[in-house]
């Protein structure tokens, strides 16, 4: 028996919004420690890694580990039926081929449930090597989304260059070029507004705008985003989900020919 209850179903909806444009389907691996999802997009350029810890749920029970393969467009349809203040309870029997989502309104005057068919997905798990990153940039997630959106108008790629002085986002296209430089802030009072750079070595890598834009769909989950970079290694874009876990995206850099 698997049962997970989240008072704030809107958080799960936000997670879904953050992954459904990258992945058509994905397996949710449920165990005693929580729910995990790891999946690459169809072109094997990016990877989504979601980790929700069991004690972040308001109720969590998982007697036997189970893998639930789901079509994310179908799952989105289910969550479209939930109210923003609803509580969600996710339930599945051991070895079941369906999962049930129950939504309860705040005052419990409305209770709805949706049963969705599970899929058998051929999932391959990837081993992600531990990396000593050259640069780790922590910045407001809304600022990152804004920069990626702005620069995407001009080119297909964004070069992210990080030095001790700050981080520079650059693009070039047919109509010209665009650059955004962010300096490290000293505003320690407001951590969520700070730009904090932890640099071992300067690094400059090129990434596809299309994917960076899809990652910024996670912006509503967290005030801050962390970008971890190292030469010839995929970029890691991490959003912490308060009290529940984290959502990480990995993106292979573009390689100069």
């Amino acid at each position: 028996m698997f049962e997970a209850r989240l008072v704030n179903s809107a958080t799960f909806k936000k997670i879904l919004d953050a992954i459904k444009d990258l992945l058509d389907q994905a397996s949710f691996d449920c165990s005693e420690s929580g729910i995990q999802l790891q999946a690459m997009d169809n072109s094997h350029v990016s990877l989504v890694s979601l980790n929700l810890k069991s004690d972040g749920f308001d109720k969590y029970r998982c007697d036997r580990s189970l893998t639930m393969g789901m079509n994310l467009a179908s799952l989105s349809k289910v969550f479209r039926c939930s109210g923003s203040d609803d509580t969600v309870t996710i339930k599945a029997q051991d070895d079941a081929d369906t999962v049930t989502f129950m939504f309860e309104s705040k005052k419990q005057e409305k209770i709805s449930d949706y049963e969705m068919k599970l899929m058998n997905l051929d999932q391959e798990h990837l081993g992600i090597p531990e990396t000593e990153f050259s640069c780790i940039i922590k910045m407001p997630s809304a600022e990152f989304a804004r920069i990626v959106r702005d620069l995407s108008q001009f080119g297909e790629s964004i070069v992210i260059s990080c030095t001790k002085e700050g981080v520079k986002f650059s693009t070039q296209g047919d109509i010209g070029t665009g650059n955004v430089k962010l300096a490290q802030t000293n505003n320690f009072d407001k951590e969520e507004e700070s730009v904090i750079i932890d640099m071992q070595e300067p690094v400059s890598l090129t990434f596809a705008c299309q994917y960076l834009n899809l990652f910024t769909k996670a912006t509503p989950l967290s005030n801050q985003v962390t970008l971890s970079m190292c030469d010839n290694v995929p970029l890691v874009v991490e959003y912490q989900i308060p009290d529940l876990g984290h959502l990480c995206y990995y993106l292979a850099p573009k390689i100069e020919e």
């Binding site: 690459m40 072109s43 094997h44 350029v45 990016s46 990877l47 391959e124 798990h125 990837l126 081993g127 992600i128 090597p129 790629s157 090129t206 596809a208 290694v233 995929p234 990995y250 292979a252 850099p253 573009k254 390689i255 100069e256 020919e257």
Partner: peptide
């Protein structure tokens, strides 16, 4: 010009 890398070359399939 640049080409898009794939993750398969960085991560091992378990």
């Amino acid at each position: 010009s640049s080409t898009q890398g794939r993750l398969d070359s960085f991560f091992k399939v378990l």
